[in-house]
Design a protein around this nucleic acid. Structure first.
Length: 441
DNA sequence: CTGGGGACGGGGCCC
DNA sequence: GGGGCCCCGTCCCCA
């Protein structure tokens, strides 16, 4: 005999207890705001809390406190409401931050829903249906990847696992949450400054955050409409053009049915903008950006989703665009610039040499080379090139690694047809930090 | 404080 | 239509 409503009723009771602060044995501090919750529920819902509470399991008599600065209280409210209700209140404005928070908290199902939300918003045929999303009450345990999710809307759950840049970092067990993976999609305050790219990624996140604040507001926002609106207004960038865009968005939101429609974000538009814009344009669903080609929109959307499908085979850094990866590879790893890095003079193969320092390569003129000494020795690119690809002499310097170094690089030098191996990877594979010794010989 | 370097987004063009 | 390449502008870090 099974009573189907038992689970939902139980969850409702727990939610009621949470809201009345009954039996709450865990406090979560998010940017100064305190959330009360039950350890058992958090443990069952979040990989992060599971790890955290496991470590504190011996002190069950003491209430547990966790502090977050990685996301806003509003975002955590969405997360916590989902934990206690199975319903995830996503909007075009909060989806990125919710996804980021879910990534931090290792809530796989929430990440999946956010991804689907974003992808669906790009799908013209689904656009009018994505105003509100909720997981069924049957799927409270968002930490269990083996369980399928059910949506109240017309969505189909993706069977694929979340991409790694959205997947929870395995080391995010600390309360302070400082161990984010290098190329993960994560909020800025969680970055570790020990990582070489952390600072840059952080500022990119700040840029992203600013852009996210400009995400279009669905006309049927379910939660946090006023607060988000205020946040948008208060956090609006001081930059003039952004303010103008914001004003435009606000005007469009306020104009109701005739204004900006979230669901038609990526649609081809020929009428929505009153400006003298040409016909056949593609509008970004998350900002006011308009492009002429669908491919350009696809490219542009990566700056909203944080997707970086192009990893550098030499240093592991990931890029959102292939041409940026190519540029990075040429600049950093191929020493394509015929300029002495020290004295800035123009050098040729006769007047200078390519120097390898770790994974980086650059050129030094012979004079500066003599001053440098043995710390970085020149590379005979010509000999190297002849050695590695005798039939392909018209290429520039090759990426070269000794056999002692990481084997994954070997495939690069084995491929004589190209300097840079373009490998569009599934983000589910985690890149490991590779330390490469300077090429001293 | 300033200039250089690198990353990155946007746009245009070619294939 | 999409991918690749190039150029430009902007931002930020760092010396």
């Amino acid at each position: 005999m099974e009573i189907s409503s038992h689970q939902s009723h139980l969850l409702e009771q727990l939610d009621e207890q949470r809201r009345q602060d009954v039996f709450c044995d865990c406090s979560i501090l998010v940017e100064g705001k305190v959330f009360k919750a039950h350890r058992n529920v958090l443990f069952a819902s979040s990989g992060y809390f599971k790890m955290l509470l496991s470590q504190n399991s011996k002190e069950t008599s003491q209430p547990t406190t966790a502090t977050f600065q990685a996301f806003s209280p509003d975002t955590f409210t969405v997360i916590l409401d989902f934990v206690y209700s199975g319903k995830l209140s996503l909007t075009g404005q909060n989806v990125i931050e919710v996804m980021s928070a879910a990534s931090f908290l290792q809530m796989t199902d929430v990440i999946g829903v956010c991804k689907t939300f974003i992808k669906s918003s790009l799908d013209i045929s689904e656009k009018e249906k994505d105003r509100y999303f909720s997981l069924s009450d049957k799927d409270v345990n968002s930490n269990g990847t083996e369980r399928s999710s059910f949506y109240s809307g017309s969505w189909q759950e993706e069977s694929s696992s979340p991409h790694s840049h959205l997947s929870p970092d395995q080391g995010a067990g600390g309360v302070s949450g400082k161990s984010w993976s290098k190329y993960s999609y994560h909020p800025a305050p969680q970055r570790s400054t020990q990582q070489p790219l952390a600072k840059h990624e952080q500022r990119k996140d700040s840029i992203k955050k600013a852009k996210h604040l400009r995400l279009s507001q669905p006309s049927e926002v379910v939660h946090f409409k006023s607060s988000k609106r205020e946040a948008r207004m208060s956090d609006s960038p001081s930059h003039g053009s952004l303010s103008e865009e914001q004003a435009q968005i606000d005007a469009e939101v306020d104009s109701g049915s005739a204004g900006y429609q979230y669901g038609q974000g990526s649609d081809v538009t020929s009428r929505s903008f009153p400006d003298d814009l040409p016909r056949m344009q593609f509008r970004c669903p998350y900002c006011t950006h308009v492009v002429k080609r669908k491919a350009d929109l696809k490219r542009h959307l990566r700056c909203h989703t944080g997707e970086r499908p192009y990893p550098c085979q030499a240093c592991g850094k990931r890029f959102s665009r292939l041409d940026h990866l190519s540029s990075h590879f040429r600049t950093i790893h191929q020493a394509c610039k015929l300029i002495c890095r020290k004295c800035k003079r123009h050098v040729t193969d006769l007047t200078g040499q390519v120097v390898q320092e770790g994974t980086r390569r650059y050129r030094l003129c012979n004079e500066c080379l003599a001053e440098v000494g043995i710390d970085s020795l020149p590379i005979d690119l010509e000999a190297e090139q002849r050695l590695m690809s005798p039939a392909d002499g018209d290429k520039d310097s090759r990426w070269h690694l000794s056999e002692d170094e990481n084997r994954s690089y070997v495939e690069i030098v084995e491929d004589g047809s190209a300097d840079l191996v373009i490998q569009q990877v599934d983000d589910s594979e985690e890149e490991e930090e590779k330390e490469i010794k300077p090429n001293i010989r």
